[in-house]
Simulated scan of single mutants.
Amino acid sequence: MPITPRPLSARLGASFTVADALAQGHTTSRLRAHDLERPYHGVRRRMPAPAPPASESAHDADPLAADRAEHARVLSDAQAYFQVAPAHAFVAGRSAAALLMLPCPAAEELCVGVVAPQRAPRGRGIRGTKIAPQLVSTREIDGVRVASPASIWAMLGGELTHRELVILGDAIVRIPRNERGRPMPDAQHATIEQLRSAAMARGRRHRGRLLAALSDIRVGSGSAVETDFRLTCQDAGLPEPDLDVEIRTPDGALVGIADAAHPGYRTLVEIEGDHHRVSRRQWLRDLQKHAAYVRLGYEVIRLVSTQVRGPRPRAPQIIADALRRHGWPG
């Protein structure tokens, strides 16, 4: 049987430097034990306890489960690396997007930036980059310095496709709502004008691609699939919908928030994830809300991701047919 390693000093956190551990009286052999990871040179990290397997239904009930897991992974890597990181380093690019739970293709390596004339960091598990000072601003998240949302978006101008840049931009400029449906502008990551300023900064590479994406970014998209829906219908020649629309009764009472709306054609669109199906509370709330929409004279189109994405998405035809029923000349 493997020998249980001696307990580590309570003064050492989840991740720590080799130097700190030696100063606490631990031996080099203790730091090679199987209960410690070596994510970066000179750093040790306690092995996490194995998580219980999540059921498929539990994952469906939490639409942000994958984003939370990626956030936790990158945060753990960042907190470990910043034990030995250069003084002015910050999390950049795709890794910074994960820390902010923004929709962006993941990176296995930790993306770390420094401001010129500092040298970009190198090493196993690190993807270093050097950037001019006018091209980035930073903030702190959970004790780690991170590029600002507008900086993240602009720095990825050469890595992401047009649609990925629009999806990321939509998430950055979105104004969240609280449980009562009230907008929270202070929770907005950045404005469209701040994205434009980042794209137009002196020396910015891929400015043309950024500005092209910016022309398609809108405030009001609540998820990546909602942005996909809007862009797919746009490519099909459909009129652009209003987003994140408050639907009210004639006396002003709020009935609900529609994902997308064509008010002139009395058509509302709801993009539904699996949590709408597996959460009984959400399901009952949707039934009541959609019935109220119909009483107000709207046709409600409910779509799922398989109708929005893929080589031949059906959503544009479904929406076109609904709009024609309400007078759209097509």
Rank of each mutant, 00 (worst) to 15 (best):
A19H: 13
I247A: 08
R209P: 00
T306G: 02
H326S: 08
A258W: 03
I175Y: 04
I301A: 07
I217F: 01
G220L: 08
E270H: 06
R163P: 00
L22G: 06
R209Q: 14
A258Q: 04
M1K: 10
F82R: 01
V146P: 03
T249Y: 12
A322H: 10
A98H: 01
S197L: 12
R145E: 00
A198D: 06
R94L: 07
L303R: 01
A85Q: 01
R204H: 10
A291Q: 13
P239K: 04
S29H: 13
H275I: 01
R325L: 10
R309G: 03
R209M: 10
V255S: 03
I217L: 07
S148R: 04
E56L: 14
Q234F: 11
E108Q: 13
L231S: 07
W283Y: 15
I172R: 04
E246T: 05
G113Y: 01
V269D: 02
L165I: 06
D321T: 15
E70P: 01
C111N: 05
M155W: 06
M200Q: 15
R209Y: 04
G222R: 15
L195F: 07
A23T: 11
A258Y: 05
A85C: 06
I172Y: 03
D274N: 09
R73A: 08
T249I: 08
L100F: 11
A92F: 02
E193Q: 14
F229T: 04
G237W: 09
S151T: 12
E37D: 14
P52F: 12
R230E: 03
A315Q: 03
G25I: 08
P185A: 10
E179K: 15
T138C: 14
P241S: 10
D186H: 14
L156C: 04
R177A: 04
M200E: 15
E179I: 11
V114P: 03
H275F: 13
E70Y: 02
D142M: 11
I257M: 11
V173I: 06
P250C: 10
R38C: 06
G330W: 07
A154M: 08
V18M: 09
R46Q: 13
V225M: 04
Y40M: 05
Q307E: 15
W283Q: 14
I3W: 06
L102S: 04
V18K: 03
V166C: 07
R196M: 06
P103A: 12
Q79N: 06
V43Y: 03
L287E: 13
R324F: 03
T4F: 02
D77H: 10
G158Q: 09
R230V: 14
V304P: 00
R230G: 03
A292F: 06
V300W: 09
E140Y: 09
R6H: 09
V219G: 02
G143D: 10
T27P: 00
A98F: 03
A190G: 07
G237H: 08
I152F: 05
A72S: 14
G113R: 02
L231C: 06
E164K: 08
L36M: 11
V115L: 07
R30K: 13
L160N: 01
P185G: 07
S221N: 12
H276M: 11
R163D: 15
S15N: 07
D228H: 13
S95C: 05
A14K: 10
D142V: 02
I175S: 01
P133D: 11
A224F: 07
